[in-house]
Measured scan of single mutants.
Amino acid sequence: MLDDRARMEAAKKEKVEQILAEFQLQEEDLKKVMRRMQKEMDRGLRLETHEEASVKMLPTYVRSTPEGSEVGDFLSLDLGGTNFRVMLVKVGEGEEGQWSVKTKHQMYSIPEDAMTGTAEMLFDYISECISDFLDKHQMKHKKLPLGFTFSFPVRHEDIDKGILLNWTKGFKASGAEGNNVVGLLRDAIKRRGDFEMDVVAMVNDTVATMISCYYEDHQCEVGMIVGTGCNACYMEEMQNVELVEGDEGRMCVNTEWGAFGDSGELDEFLLEYDRLVDESSANPGQQLYEKLIGGKYMGELVRLVLLRLVDENLLFHGEASEQLRTRGAFETRFVSQVESDTGDRKQIYNILSTLGLRPSTTDCDIVRRACESVSTRAAHMCSAGLAGVINRMRESRSEDVMRITVGVDGSVYKLHPSFKERFHASVRRLTPSCEITFIESEEGSGRGAALVSAVACKKACMLGQ
């Protein structure tokens, strides 16, 4: 009897593995994704193909990295998701002549009506938060230079001027797309009239992360975010950046690689679950690469896999709870928690219980395998993109072996128990001629924006502006 049951459990697990095998990517698959990513990057950089390229390769006008001589107080704003952060950054000489960066910050959550109302409502709310922060720190009387981390696709015309191309991540505030974001912020500050600010720089969160990590390690020339969304930036040779005049030196390019796949480059790798996630998203047909990796989508992918296993009578005796059938019910943090389970399955059992399920031991094991399959594919897909960037940098610099540091931020990278190990191992397999160091950014977005502002202020002083 026991043997029969054991055989049935083994057969069930084997069927589960057959279904989950769809998520496995072979090294040849990853090399294919990497080569296609490089081709799209090239198209994004070139003037004649930029418009139709899915990977936009947006110039950021960040050319210099901090040298350690900029000092002063800077205000930093960070808008990239449902939370908005205001930070005071003091850049100065530390002990023994070292450079020191001290920060104080406060988080504000953005109400739904500000995210989806008008641009005026959104930026009025942001300036209200700045006003509140300055009151708390008794700094209303000071006109501070301000660095703005704005983590949406922007076409820069200068370091302090950028046109919002399109909202992502659930934002829909009308009247912002096609307009200068810094102008919208300046107008809102003017409307309030109770404080003055000098907006000197606007950067993407990947750029802010790279600059913040450069402060720790001067070989950091790539910034990457794996959180709600997924994106990367890197220092490109100016001669390859056709959208900006000049051939000397390097400029940081914001790849906006989340949109890779929007022209069909990933079609052969998309599964039924991916198509369902895409169809029910706020932007169907867009940001397809990001939807395979980002935390906004990972939990939902797992939920759809679990429903398939229920329908195949391989999980929960073929019956799903009402909660499990509800879109968004299986949160991405559950994926991390399930994979963090120590082996007694308590954590998995508790999560499934909150979803109205009474799982068996085998159910718990199957749910864990589903989570591992989805998150491992995410790590491997992400590795193909980064390997594409790094191999490109090595080739354009004609280096036999390139040493490089990548600064990384984002909740999936930082909080998932195995993502970074799987990701690092896969990147290294795909970049055999590179020695890569990964560092995690601390308060990256805010500190990085302030350091970019410090560079901009120093330049302005040198130019006598």
Rank of each mutant, 00 (worst) to 15 (best):
E14L: 10
A425V: 08
L75S: 09
F438N: 03
M210T: 00
T82K: 05
V207P: 00
Q18W: 08
M202C: 07
E242Q: 03
K346S: 15
M87T: 09
Q106I: 10
N391W: 11
Y413M: 07
M202L: 05
G117L: 04
E237L: 03
R155D: 07
L185F: 04
S445F: 00
E256K: 01
P359R: 10
G318V: 13
M235P: 12
V310N: 13
S353Q: 10
D311C: 14
V89C: 15
Q138T: 12
R429L: 11
Y108C: 03
Y234W: 06
E96H: 07
A6G: 12
K56F: 06
E93I: 07
D311G: 14
Q239C: 10
V86Y: 03
N180T: 05
E245F: 10
G388A: 11
Y214R: 15
S64D: 14
A259P: 06
D194I: 14
D194G: 07
M402Q: 10
G343N: 06
Q323I: 12
C382I: 08
E17K: 05
E248F: 14
G249W: 08
E322N: 14
L58P: 03
V62W: 05
H156T: 01
K172T: 07
R428K: 15
R428N: 11
M462P: 14
N231L: 07
G117E: 04
F316R: 07
R394T: 06
E216R: 09
S69T: 15
T118K: 02
E51P: 10
Q106A: 10
E95N: 07
A450I: 02
K420P: 09
T209C: 01
E112L: 11
K420Y: 09
R397C: 10
Y273V: 13
G170F: 01
G175S: 00
N240V: 13
S131N: 05
L184G: 04
T326N: 06
R394W: 04
G147V: 03
Q287E: 04
S411P: 07
M34F: 12
E221W: 14
V200F: 03
H141V: 07
D3Y: 11
R46T: 14
H105M: 05
M8H: 10
L324F: 10
G343W: 07
V241F: 00
E248S: 12
F269M: 09
K15M: 15
N283S: 08
M381Y: 15
T103K: 02
V244W: 00
G249V: 00
G81L: 01
R7I: 11
S69Q: 02
Q239Y: 03
V305R: 09
V199G: 02
C461D: 14
G170N: 04
D187K: 06
M87Q: 00
G80D: 03
R392E: 07
N166S: 10
S445G: 09
G81V: 01
N240Y: 12
V389H: 03
Y413H: 05
D400Q: 10
F148K: 02
Y273T: 15
R422F: 11
F74V: 05
L306N: 03
G261D: 06
S383E: 02
E399Y: 11
E236Q: 05
K143F: 06
Y61P: 05
V226M: 07
G170R: 03
R369L: 07
E435F: 10
T342L: 09
Q18K: 14
G229Q: 01
P153N: 01
G407Y: 01
G385N: 01
D267E: 11
S383D: 01
R250L: 15
H424N: 12
N391H: 12
I189C: 02
T49H: 04
G223M: 01
E399A: 10
G94A: 09
D3R: 13
V244F: 07
L315P: 01
E312G: 13
T405I: 07
V338E: 01
R333P: 07
A188V: 08
M197W: 02
A370K: 02
R327P: 09
G385M: 04
E300S: 05
A176H: 00
L288T: 15
D217A: 15
G223R: 01
T118Q: 07
H317V: 13
Y349G: 11
L25Y: 08
V16L: 15
V277N: 15
K296F: 04
E28A: 13
F133Q: 01
G68A: 10
